[in-house]
């Protein structure tokens, strides 16, 4: 079935089977930052944005996206570089397999709550599992990133 959609700002006309999930479509197109992790909509490593919202690409049928916009990590290179550097500075990218999904979630967090509390950071990122880092260092990295970007202080609970 033919689907017209935008991926990372570029227009694509794709002929996909009706049961193809977005994760598969994106990987077939070479967007390798999007990864399979759990097959049960739980782990978050396949997180991308659809129309600006973080979603699991394993849980979206591609044919449903006719006329929609998809963003993967490849589409936000500058942010990936910036946020990624903070993760690397803390050493919490570790195996790196879940990093792209995590960064997509951090971007969504930033969009929803630009100056989040720790609790809000954890809330927005709870759907991104990681077995390597122990999470604690990721929180340090994200806080440093947000502090550098938005300035320290003026954190408010919402």
């Amino acid at each position: 079935m033919v689907v017209n959609l935008k991926i990372n700002g570029r227009h694509y006309t794709l002929d996909v089977p009706p049961d193809e999930i977005l994760l598969t479509t994106l990987r077939n197109l070479g967007f390798n930052s999007v990864r399979q992790g759990c097959d049960t909509s739980t782990c978050g490593v396949c997180t991308v944005h659809v129309d600006g919202k973080a979603v699991l690409s394993c849980t979206v049928l591609t044919c449903r996206l006719d006329g929609h916009e998809v963003t993967t990590l490849e589409g936000v290179e500058e942010a990936a570089e910036t946020i990624g550097r903070f993760l690397v500075e803390e050493g919490v990218e570790q195996c790196g397999y879940c990093s792209p999904g995590l960064i997509m979630s951090i971007l969504y967090l930033e969009k929803c709550v630009p100056q989040p509390t720790d609790e809000q950071i954890l809330h927005y990122l709870n759907g991104n599992l990681c077995r390597c880092s122990g999470y604690e260092g990721q929180l340090r990295a994200i806080k440093k990133y947000l502090e550098v970007k938005y300035g320290a202080g003026s954190k408010q609970a919402i």
Partner: peptide
Amino acid sequence: VRDIVGIQLRNL
């Protein structure tokens, strides 16, 4: 709903 798995699932 806020404790259900993760936001990327709740958005679906």
